[in-house]
Design a protein around this nucleic acid. Structure first.
Lengths: 251, 251
DNA sequence: ACCTGAACACCGTTCAAGT
DNA sequence: ACCTGAACACCGTTCAAGT
């Protein structure tokens, strides 16, 4: 998957006879790719600078020459994962475009579920600024009828919505003592007093392991497709209604 | 023998002559409270079993007798913080109730912003099951007109929406080198090519530090009130529309 | 310029031992 | 029952040194 190793372009210097040349066993791209592979395979918990170094057969401290620190490395991993987010196919309506954006985001997280919580923490607060994406969102929202302060609010709604559902859908489940934990959740559910909670009791088969709080697996094993689809539609329909409110109130 | 431990408050038990009684300097509640205080004050990064132990003037390993492990302790902290979430004032309409729920959740996070990302990771996937809350959500959604599989989807929409926006609004900003990072974001924004990104350029004052991706402070310092309000309204209006769709399509 | 290597101040957790 | 205490296998990061 060629991540663009633009940095190690090595111009030959014919004039100068070198007895020794830099080892160059490492590059920032290699490190970031290795880190992502580690996270994808073993989860975010087992990510560490030292493990990345081990994976690259290098001393831990060598990492620090290429990336600032642990958090900056995670930021770079994030940027790599989200690289293709802004590559939007064009859509006829702003509604279609936003829906496609949400779906595209979710597909990315599906491929790299272990970075989901990273994104919750970093992307939306963060600095790997993809101006093209932001510009397009604003364009589509203007198209929808938003302007001024309402445009900024709508922008935050779109970004919050894009990451909001999916982040939690793919939130990690406790370590991997899944068996023990699964039986805990099940016991909790089994101990349910169906007189006090008749609706939960009635819908238990549909809820068990398929609804937030009542599940022991995350989106990797049990995708919440219906919930995601309704969430997306609800938000779009809601923005539509609010945009029209604005238009009306201006007349 | 009676070991003279200064700490052991010693209730006299007249009926039973004890030669020795348990020290009881610790309790699970004390540990959870101490952990929350630590997180509130110093952030989630500086939370550790060892620091909690230090705060309680106790050996790190003493913690393990009361709580299973680090993650279970964090789960308990979460349960403590969210204790009051289900204590809902009654509302006339299901729309009002959901709006109040979202607001109540956000107020809780406002008070304990450093646990926001914890919740993203744990609550929605997790086992501190508050059946009363779940039952009420289902009740209100039935009231809204949802039933069957659509009810489960709507439930997931509500829970995902409740945590989705706020989690990211209060997502932590990188460590606390805020000064350096702030200037980084600003430099990125300053380097913006306003011909390619005219809308960003035009709305820059309204966006800078007030919009996801383009901010260097989180909801603690810069609450996204307008975004949150619009997000909530959009989701409610959207659910309303979808519920009516269902009713219509059944006729 | 790029990496090795030692060192420091931390972690979570287990296990044995005390009382 | 509840805590001490030592021990183990980890961390992130700094700094000096090699080449």
């Amino acid at each position: 998957m060629t991540v663009g190793f633009a940095k190690s372009r090595r111009k030959p210097r014919p004039k100068k006879a070198l007895t020794r040349q830099p080892r160059r066993v490492l590059s920032k791209d290699m490190i970031v790719v290795a880190a992502l592979e580690l996270i994808d395979r073993a989860g975010i918990e087992s990510f560490s600078v030292r493990n990345v170094a081990k994976k690259l057969h290098v001393f831990p401290t060598a990492i620090y020459w290429h990336v600032g620190d642990r958090n900056k490395l995670l930021g770079d991993v994030l940027a790599l994962v989200l690289r293709d987010l802004s590559s939007a196919e064009d859509a006829a309506t702003w509604q279609d475009w936003i829906r496609a954006l949400f779906i595209r985001y979710r597909e990315i997280i599906r491929k790299h579920p272990n970075v989901a919580l990273l994104i919750g923490v970093q992307l939306v607060a963060n600095a790997n600024v993809d101006f093209a994406l932001i510009e397009t969102i604003l364009t589509r929202l203007e198209q929808a009828g938003f302007a001024g302060a309402k445009l900024v609010a709508a922008y935050n709604v779109v970004l919050g919505g894009m990451v909001g559902f999916t982040t939690h859908e793919f939130a990690r489940v406790p370590d991997d003592n899944t068996a023990a934990w699964r039986s805990l959740v099940r016991r909790n559910i089994a101990a349910l007093d169906s007189r006090h909670f008749p609706r939960i009791a009635r819908h238990l088969p549909a809820l068990t392991n398929k609804a937030f709080i009542l599940r022991w697996q995350n989106g990797v094993d049990v995708p919440l497709d219906d919930g995601f689809a309704m969430f997306t539609e609800a938000l779009i329909l809601g923005l539509e209604a609010i945009a029209h409110q604005k238009v009306r109130s201006r007349r």
